[in-house]
């Protein structure tokens, strides 16, 4: 069993630079209108009348009404509890509607200098937190370039990432050997 959490990254030349860039990315990801829409996935109400720079909507969610947002996974099992938590978070940090949406929906998992990010990824895996990561970017298609140019060489220097491919197949590279044919056909879903 391999565990591979995912996340996106923002690099900077200094830690402060990375933090500032991540803030800019988050603001670009969540405009005022996007903030309303993201909150609608939980409130299930038309929130277009609420000022993104104002407080959170003062109404309760309406989980039984017709769906406002169709075609994306609903994020909250219990929208009332989610809203309660968000109100507390917004009160604590004096967040506007948009700032709350940015905090909740625009989190970049890996922010830092190349060295900081390489250290954190490597430390996590070496301490068995996971087997690796699935890395994405806010930019398509060139977003991964700077990760490959600036973070990958550091992981390779540490001996934590291959310098060359050694396996012939994906299975070889992942280290997931094939279970013998027919060995456990009874185990539904246990695909090797």
């Amino acid at each position: 069993m391999k565990l591979l959490p995912g996340g996106s990254f923002v690099l900077g030349d200094t830690a402060a630079d990375a933090t500032e860039r991540a803030r800019e990315v988050a603001r670009a990801q969540v405009s005022g209108q996007t903030a309303q829409i993201l909150l609608e996935t939980v409130w299930n109400r038309d929130l277009s009348g609420y000022d993104p720079d104002g407080p959170l909507p003062d109404v309760d969610p309406d989980p039984t009404g017709p769906l406002v947002i169709q075609g994306r996974a609903r994020l909250a099992q219990d929208p009332f509890e989610t809203v309660r938590q968000w109100r507390a978070l917004a009160a604590q940090h004096r967040y506007s509607l948009r700032e709350l949406a940015i905090r909740v929906f625009a989190h970049t998992e890996f922010v830092g200098t190349p060295t900081e990010i390489a250290d954190r990824l490597d430390h996590f895996v070496q301490n068995d937190g996971s087997d690796g990561f699935i890395v994405g970017s806010h930019l398509t298609p060139g977003g991964i370039d700077e990760f490959v140019d600036r973070v990958v060489p550091l992981l390779q220097e540490r001996g934590s990432l291959r310098a060359e491919y050694t396996g012939a197949t994906l299975r070889d590279n992942l280290g997931i050997p094939l279970a013998p044919v027919g060995a456990d056909r009874e185990t539904a879903g246990a695909v090797g």
């Binding site: 625009a106 895996v125 070496q126 087997d131 690796g132 990432l161």
Partner: peptide, 21 residues
């Protein structure tokens, strides 16, 4: 050292992808 497995995912059709960049 444990070898880090890396995958790259591309192209979410959601607010994470900055099409206006």
């Amino acid at each position: 050292r444990k070898q880090i497995i890396l995958g790259h995912y591309v192209g979410g059709v959601n607010h994470h992808t900055l099409w206006s960049h």
